[in-house]
Amino acid sequence: MLDSLWEPLGYAFMQRALVAALLASVACAVVGTFVILRGMAFMGEAIGHSSLAGMAVAYFLGGNVFWGALAWAVPASLGITFISRRAKLRLDTAIGIIFAGGFALGIILMSQVNNYTADLFGLLFGNVLAASWGEAALTGGMALGVLAAVAAFYKELLFTAYDADMAAASGIPVRLVQYFLPVLVAVTTVVALKTVGIVLVLALLVTPPATATLLARRLPGIMAASVAVAVVSVVAGLYLSFYADLPTGPSIVMVATGFFLLALLFSPSKGVWRRLQRSPPTETAAAGSGADR
């Protein structure tokens, strides 16, 4: 039993995969908490998909697709925020435009490249097993940068996310924070691309924090629980992938999804199971008029 726990880590490629996936998923878990509270999930999805354009350009020029994705994602996130502020469009409309436009551009560029389908698949689904130590270090560096940024501006991010008007009224540079958070989301998305690829990046960004909101009450607790869920999902997902001979990224996502379903059933505060147990509805009614969603 112990042997089978250690065996996968005897391989260098599994060590690198573990390091890269852990760091990426922890960054996602923390930034994702703000993403789900601000309803920015679609933005993460859009940034991931539209990054295909930047990756394709990098691929075309023979550069590292990571930098290509980053060079696209950060301006795209700023663009989404800018368009929605200036053009008086709803945020989801602005996101949709950038999402589809960037993805289409990426596909057109990739279709000019040799062996289109396999390469496109590689970008869409990522492969953490192919991570070199250099890439793992890059992923780790970016992830630590994201975490440091959240730690440094925690109270500004919290206040602005909670009540932007009030934050502005008390002198917090709200406009700056409102551009900063999407940039954080963009960097985090790019960091996670290597692990799970464009298509599944949203799962790392959303599923652990969503699970955490079912388990913890206050924001710091939710972040901690989100990180815990992400870490356990990555480790369990890697082992599942190793022993069941399954693709790695999707395995991690499936484990995280499993945790979410468990939390949905057994959450101490909001779980279906708990709700069934206290069948008399009077107790829930006392929670307050506006408490219901």
Binding site: L215, A216, R217, R218, P220, G221, M223, A224, A225, V227, A228, V229, V232, F259, L262, A263, F266, S267, P268, S269, G271
Partner: peptide
Amino acid sequence: PARIWPGAIQAI
């Protein structure tokens, strides 16, 4: 984490 509800640990 310290502030998770006890049930969270069970769930995890």
